[in-house]
């Protein structure tokens, strides 16, 4: 989609966000994570939401939102500035070797900043980078007392029943027992 067209939509969205849509539902707030280079099927996101969760942050489409801050413009070394931004203003991701800046700690910080109730790990099956990070991220969540669940989804399926069940159980357990 051309940026110009996208900007028009964005402006509409910003307007919509400002409007009053009544009271928010009694849902829990979750961060979803799975090191998504692309967007997972919309059905998966909808299933999580319909099960009683507001997705308050995510790591979808990492590639197209990699630099999360401005590239330094006042420099004689523009290439260096891009590299610096790429390295230092990027999200936590399984594509990054993280010694010194552990992804687990960054995830917990994100959960706190978004006042999330928990984390849903939902990497695509066979996604080695995301799945190999999972045990470590879970360890950080456990240490910080952040509730979490995990499931894998299979790309190209429209089957989200199990995901809905798991997300629903997760939402209930936080709403009723935390």
């Amino acid at each position: 989609m051309p940026v110009e067209d996208h900007n028009v939509i964005l402006e509409e969205v910003l307007q919509l966000i400002k409007e009053d849509h009544g009271e928010p539902m009694d849902n829990i707030r979750v961060v979803i994570t799975g090191s998504f280079c692309e967007q997972p099927p919309i059905g998966m996101l909808k299933s999580i939401e319909m099960a009683g969760c507001y997705i308050v942050d995510d790591d979808l489409m990492l590639g197209s939102r990699w630099t999360q801050g401005d590239v330094d413009e006042n420099t004689v070394d523009p290439l260096g500035a891009i590299v610096t931004a790429f390295l230092t203003k990027s999200p936590a991701s399984s594509a990054v070797y993280d010694v010194g800046n552990p992804k687990g700690a960054r995830l917990v910080k994100l959960v706190r900043r978004r006042e999330a109730d928990g984390v849903i790990f939902c990497a695509a099956s066979f996604c080695d980078p995301a799945l190999l990070d999972r045990p470590e991220l879970q360890k950080f969540c456990d240490a910080a007392g952040v509730a979490h669940i995990n499931f894998q989804f299979h790309e190209n399926t429209g089957q989200f029943k199990v995901i809905k069940e798991q997300a629903g159980t997760f939402s209930d357990s936080i709403k009723l027992w935390v």
Binding site: M25, A51, G52, G168, T169, S171, K175, L176
Partner: peptide, 10 residues
């Protein structure tokens, strides 16, 4: 118009 949803098992 619901305020919240609970899983059937719950």
């Amino acid at each position: 118009r619901k305020r919240g949803h609970f899983y059937g098992m719950t």
